[in-house]
Amino acid sequence: MDQTRLKRHYLIRSVILTGFTLLLTYLIVSEKLSHYLAPRLHMFSYVTLGILVILTVVSIRQAIVGANEYDCDCEDVHKVPRSPWISLIVYGLFLLPLAMGFLMPDKILGSDVAEKRGITLLSNDVRKLAEVAAATESAKSNTDIADNRNSTDPSLSAGDTKPAPEAGSEQVEESNQEQGPSDATQQEPADIEDEQIRKRFDTNGFGDFYTDLAVSLYKQPVIDLHEKVFLDGLTTMELYAKEFAGKEMEILGFVYRQTDFSAEQFVVARFSVSCCTADASVFGILVEKPDGSKWAKDSWVKVRGKLELRKVDGFDMLMLKANQVEPVKAPKDPYVYYSYDAASNS
């Protein structure tokens, strides 16, 4: 193949590579990369951008200087297309997504996608955890009863309720009683409050992560379910629905409605992304307000109200009885993600 035709192919490739480099640069600089990828994958995009820059520079050099076709045993694998129609098909496969990236607007996911994928108000995982916790609690109580029965000493007379105290035990008890008040006074009021609140949550067996987050959220006069605790906060409140009933909460998200909703009902929802928008799931909480129908679908709102307990399919589910709904702009990163440090972010 002559050098002029070969340079022409490398020029087309340089244009395509330059286009992808500029598109990825635009997404990173404009902070719109989060519309497509989860933050934990952004580093791979930066590496990809560096590789694209190198490939673009090499391709431009070959388009200017020229290059010889590869001479190897790979047959036609490395050779440029020889037919105009094949060239159109091959390069068109790259130009089409490039044109879509530049011409189509960056649109965040909304109700149309939520309707197709369904929205999670009470997740199956939470239901399973609730069933496991109930079974565990039942087994524990049965074990305690059995232990109490086995601990009865048949050698005691009918009038005895406990064995005689051993020598020195009275002194130990008196010592413990003397130390008790002094230890209690050494505790900070905040620590005592945390312990009292923790007793509400640590009996259900859901683990320290959810217990810590439950305590952190419960201490807030108005629970702020912001993006860093959105998913874990919803899960925690689902696990401890009875404990959180009656608490004030503030939440931000887009308006979603189903056809079977009443005029006063809508869902404040957010999309959760694990890797990219292709695996996005929808989570939210049901809201009730007398004038709820005035808020347009897919509009972003900040809602404040009181949590109320409802029975759904035999499970306790929290809904938000709103007293204030405020229109807001969609955040730069509209999606939410699970966090392993949610308690410290609440």
Rank of each mutant, 00 (worst) to 15 (best):
K140H: 09
T161V: 11
G205R: 02
S111L: 10
G180L: 14
D147R: 15
F102D: 02
D125S: 14
A184N: 06
L129T: 01
G110S: 08
E137L: 15
E173R: 12
V113R: 14
S111E: 08
N124E: 09
D183R: 12
L98N: 02
Q187G: 07
S157V: 06
I197G: 06
L109N: 02
I145V: 15
A139D: 11
R127E: 03
L103M: 02
S155P: 02
K162V: 05
A99G: 14
G205T: 01
K116Y: 05
D191Q: 14
E115D: 12
D153H: 09
L121D: 00
G159I: 03
T203N: 13
L121V: 06
E115G: 13
N124C: 04
T152E: 14
S151E: 09
F201M: 03
L95A: 12
A114R: 00
V126S: 10
A146N: 09
N148T: 11
P165S: 12
I197K: 05
D144V: 14
L129N: 05
S169Y: 08
D160I: 08
D160H: 06
A190Q: 06
T152C: 13
A99I: 09
T185I: 06
R198P: 05
L109K: 03
D144T: 12
A158S: 15
A184E: 07
V172L: 06
G159H: 02
I192D: 05
D106Y: 05
E166Q: 11
A139I: 09
E131L: 14
V126P: 00
P189R: 01
V132D: 11
D160E: 14
L122M: 05
L96T: 13
Q171F: 10
R198W: 03
E115V: 12
D106C: 03
T161E: 10
E188W: 04
P165Y: 06
D147H: 13
K107I: 11
A146S: 14
Q186F: 06
F201Y: 02
K140N: 10
D147S: 15
L98H: 01
Q196D: 09
E137F: 08
L98Y: 00
T161Q: 07
I192Y: 03
E193C: 04
S151W: 01
P181E: 11
D125P: 02
D191I: 11
A158Y: 09
R200S: 15
R127N: 02
P165W: 05
G101W: 07
S175Y: 05
